[in-house]
Amino acid sequence: MFKKKLKALEYMDWDKVNANDPKHFRKLVVWLEEQKIRHYQIEERGELRNMNSNNWSETFTKYCYDVACPITTEPIDRLEWLVGYAVKLEFQDNYKKYQPITGVSLKEMNKQAGPSVKSSNPLDNLNFYTAEFRNGVETLAKILRVPCHSNHLVTLEACSKVVTRRLNADALLHPSSVVVKGKEFPILETGLGFTLGDSALENAAKILRLLYIQDLRNLQTRINEAIVSIQNITANPKTDTKLGQVGK
């Protein structure tokens, strides 16, 4: 997907780029800023262009901060975010060209999800992109043994699911009900039933299928619980004998 995005951006060496090579990495970053992102003024790009500088890594870190990159982990993860950001800007600059394909207008893309509402909840006033918040999420993930994602908000969502499913009141009373048993299912080794021409896409499709099956099972469990609740009511009717009449 990384190279496909570069191809869509018309990067000259999209099929040869190696993000692990410092020369390729720095060349790509400079190209993204010069051709697509254009966050800095031309005269401000000097340090970024000086790819042989010993301080280039610090310059890159500052650049990521200036463009509000939320990724603070590996440089490659930051580069991938920059490429995705460049794709977004490319769409905004040429949305009329891509609108017949995507069906999404620029207005729909940028419109707010809802009106701005002031909340008294202190959680709504948190800055989710501070270093302190990221460190807190990483600490929580280590405690829960949740793998950290390059985007700390994705990690936080995973932590939330673990707490909701395995640390709720019922799970704490009956821990054996949430302990996974049996052998791991080799999902990536199973057949998909069709081909997509890309191993990464096929693996993603297998995972999505497994998640869909899990959602269906959860839905069936809720349906069964609803049926049992109704049966408990209908199987034990209470008769009001005061309403009965004997004779005429």
Rank of each mutant, 00 (worst) to 15 (best):
K4P: 01
K7L: 10
L9Q: 05
N20I: 00
D21E: 10
F25M: 02
F25D: 04
K27M: 05
K27Q: 09
L28M: 04
W31S: 07
L32P: 03
E33Y: 03
E33W: 03
E34D: 15
Q35R: 14
Y40P: 01
Q41L: 13
E47R: 10
R49K: 14
S53N: 08
W56P: 05
C64G: 05
D66H: 10
C69Y: 08
C69L: 11
I71N: 06
T73P: 00
P75G: 07
D77K: 12
R78E: 14
W81V: 09
G84E: 14
K88Q: 07
L89W: 06
Q92K: 14
Q92T: 05
N94K: 13
Y95V: 00
Y95E: 02
Y98F: 15
T102I: 06
V104I: 15
L106Q: 03
L106K: 13
K107Q: 13
K111C: 10
P115R: 12
S116Y: 13
S116G: 03
S116R: 10
N121V: 10
P122M: 13
L123E: 15
D124G: 04
D124H: 10
L126P: 02
Y129M: 13
E138Q: 08
E138G: 00
T139G: 02
A141R: 02
K142G: 03
R145N: 15
R145Q: 15
H149C: 12
N151Y: 15
H152E: 07
H152P: 03
L153P: 06
C159I: 09
C159V: 08
K161S: 09
T164A: 14
R165G: 00
N168H: 08
A169L: 11
L172V: 03
L173N: 12
S177Q: 08
V180C: 06
K181C: 00
F185N: 12
P186I: 03
G191L: 07
G191V: 00
G193H: 02
L196S: 06
L196N: 04
G197M: 07
G197T: 02
D198N: 15
S199R: 14
L201R: 04
A204C: 10
K206T: 11
L208D: 11
L208F: 10
R209S: 09
R209W: 14
I213P: 00
I213A: 12
N218L: 08
L219I: 10
A226F: 04
I227Q: 14
I227H: 11
V228C: 05
V228M: 09
N232A: 03
A235I: 00
N236C: 07
T239E: 11
L243R: 14
G244P: 00
G244W: 10
